[in-house]
Amino acid sequence: MSGANAGTGAVISARPATAGRLSRLMFRHEVLRGYTMLAPALVIMVLAILLPFVLMIVMSFWDQVGFDFDTTPTLQNYREIAEKPIYSALLLRSLWVSGIATLATVLVCYPMAYFVAFHVHRHKMLWLIIITLPFWTSYLMRIFSWKVILGYEGVINSGLMSIGLIDAPLDFLIYSPGAVTLTLAHTWAAFALLPIYVSLEKIDRSVLEAAADLGDSPLVRFFRITLPLSMPGVIAAVFLMFIPTVGDYVTPTLVGGPDGAMIGNLLQVQFGGVNNWPMGAAIAVVMVLAIAVVGLCFLALTALFRRWAT
């Protein structure tokens, strides 16, 4: 009887010992604590982003044979991308279109964010909600409404015709790279507005006062203080918008027409009708690299700007 009791006692006392050791370990090592907290996100990142990305890179060196893959590594897909003009042309057009769209959006959103951050003092939340209200509608609906606005019998054309400015509808409004740029700039505006607003909101007002006290004119103060301090928000906005829009294929499909096609359209057909997944993977890899290069150039430019401003 007493022996059995002793046995149970040992088991019970063992448990707090391990738990204690674990918590002591956690307490002592900050890095371990950090990784434990990151674990759920890390697992998702590895499973849903890193692994597919590696698979994509590996697949881009394969070859499609009928319905199957030839898995002997080959550079053939990359060679084709380098040799045929369509790939570089569509890639450049995509970078150009979404670059312009990003630039336009940031330029338009910055004053809006500035206004809400510095000149609105009550009901800021309400203002933000009102400004971002259009983005509560579906992405697709917003593109379609641009189709209605820009279309052959659309709002702009019928408006101009009814006041007698034009006789026949302007047919360059829709189905052109310009239409894609305009639609992208509008449909992604919320992604630019919010980060810029947050970084402007965080600027310490006393720094601005100090600049004014020391004799800076409002314009100089903006370029020396406000803009450099809000740069993280601008950079975030640029990346949040530029990266996804380069590969967008819904907008060019609906408002781009034959001349407004982008690299995303070409990529999509590789996984659809053309049924050449390795080629699609290679295009995706090249696209990611191109975005990375443009992004790094942009970061270098902003670093130069900061050095110049200070």
């Binding site: 009928g66 319905f67 045929k84 034959p258 096609a261 057909v269 009708g273």
Partner: peptide
């Protein structure tokens, strides 16, 4: 053939994009 079909789709995509 399957290859012919895929080739026509690929070529048509090129043509549609202006190449």
């Amino acid at each position: 053939s399957m290859e012919w079909g895929a080739a026509t789709v690929a070529e048509l995509e090129m043509i549609k994009s202006g190449f």
